[in-house]
Simulated assay, not measured.
Amino acid sequence: MTRTPVQNPAGRQGRPAYDRDSLLEIAVVVFNERGYDGTGMEELARRLGLSKSSIYHHVSGKEELLELAVNRALDALFAVLDEDGGAHGERAGDLTATARMKRVVHRSVEVLAAELPYVTLLLRLHGNSLVEQRALARRREFDHRVAELMTRAAAEGGIRADIDPHLASRLLFGTVNSLVEWYRPDRGLTAQTLADALTTILFDGLHGPNSPAPHAS
Rank of each mutant, 00 (worst) to 15 (best):
L136W: 07
V176Q: 09
V70P: 05
L172C: 15
A161I: 08
F173D: 11
H207P: 00
Q192L: 10
L24A: 04
R3F: 08
L112N: 02
R184Y: 03
R134N: 10
A168E: 12
Q13Y: 11
L68H: 02
N71A: 03
F31A: 02
G40Q: 05
D94M: 12
Y183D: 07
A92M: 08
M1S: 11
L68F: 02
D82T: 11
L77S: 05
D37N: 08
R145A: 09
Q13I: 08
E141F: 00
I163A: 12
T2D: 08
D82P: 00
R20S: 10
G158Q: 05
A213W: 01
G89D: 08
H144C: 08
V30A: 10
L116E: 01
L81M: 11
V105P: 07
T96C: 10
T120Q: 06
P16K: 03
G188S: 06
D37H: 11
R140E: 12
D204P: 01
E90Q: 15
S60P: 00
E90C: 12
E156H: 06
S53N: 12
V109K: 00
T96Y: 10
E67F: 03
L130E: 14
G61R: 00
T190I: 04
T200R: 15
L23D: 06
F31C: 02
A168S: 15
V105T: 14
D84Q: 15
A92H: 11
R184Q: 13
H58Q: 13
D186T: 09
G38V: 03
N71G: 00
A135T: 05
V119R: 01
H166L: 04
P209Q: 07
S108W: 10
E42Y: 04
A191P: 04
D84V: 11
S54A: 15
R124T: 07
A97S: 14
L44P: 05
L24I: 00
E42N: 13
R139M: 14
L171S: 15
S169Q: 14
P9S: 13
R134M: 04
A27S: 12
A216D: 15
L194N: 05
D162K: 02
A154T: 09
E148R: 13
A195W: 04
L65P: 02
A76S: 14
T120Y: 01
L194E: 06
F203A: 12
L112W: 01
V28G: 02
T4D: 11
R72S: 07
P117N: 01
K62A: 03
S108I: 11
G205R: 11
A137S: 12
A154Y: 04
A216Q: 13
V180I: 14
A92K: 13
L95A: 12
H207F: 06
G127E: 09
D84T: 14
L121D: 01
L44T: 03
D75Q: 05
A73H: 03
A137N: 09
L194Y: 04
S211L: 14
T193H: 09
T200N: 10
V111I: 13
T200D: 13
A137K: 13
E33Y: 01
N128T: 12
L112H: 02
K62Y: 02
G89E: 08
G208P: 07
D162E: 14
N8T: 14
E63F: 07
Q7K: 12
E132F: 10
L48P: 03
A99V: 06
